[in-house]
């Protein structure tokens, strides 16, 4: 099926969009003004920091113990609370990983 749109219908849609968009322009201008204060240094937090902070053994061992096979442990995430039609439980599953990994 080949549908065509006339120039008039494009103009009509654009005109309607402009009418709808006219109201929040003031807010957009404010945001533009804010943009002038861009501070790139505050982008995504802590990317270059040593998370453990000064005075601690930054390397430490606090997180070194995560094993490569940690998915065999019971997950604490929200996956199992997420509805899934294809799952036998009706929710996302991670438990079967244990069986998979052992096999």
């Amino acid at each position: 099926m080949n549908k065509t749109l006339t120039a008039a219908s494009l103009a009509l849609a654009l005109g309607a969009a402009l009418t709808v968009a006219a109201a929040p322009v003031a807010a957009a201008d404010e945001k533009m003004a804010m943009e002038k204060e861009h501070c790139y240094g505050v982008a995504l937090k802590g990317k270059n920091d040593c998370k453990a902070g000064a005075g601690t053994s930054c390397a430490g061992t606090s997180k070194v113990d995560y094993q490569g096979n940690a998915w065999t442990a019971v997950p604490t995430g929200s996956c199992e609370k997420t509805v899934s039609k294809t799952s036998p439980t009706g929710y996302g599953q991670l438990k079967e990983f244990k069986a998979k990994m052992a096999g």
């Binding site: 995504l44 937090k45 802590g46 990317k47 040593c50 998370k51 390397a59 997180k63 070194v64 995560y66 094993q67 490569g68 096979n69 940690a70 998915w71 442990a73 997950p75 604490t76 995430g77 929200s78 996956c79 997420t82 996302g92 991670l94």
Partner: peptide, 25 residues
């Protein structure tokens, strides 16, 4: 650990979905 932390910062929802332990591994 710093690279894992960087990924955790970028992917907070992905981490929440599977849990911190799974995500970090």
């Amino acid at each position: 650990v710093s690279l894992i932390d960087a990924l955790a910062d970028t992917y907070p929802v992905t981490q929440e979905l599977v849990g911190e332990e799974f995500f970090r591994a």
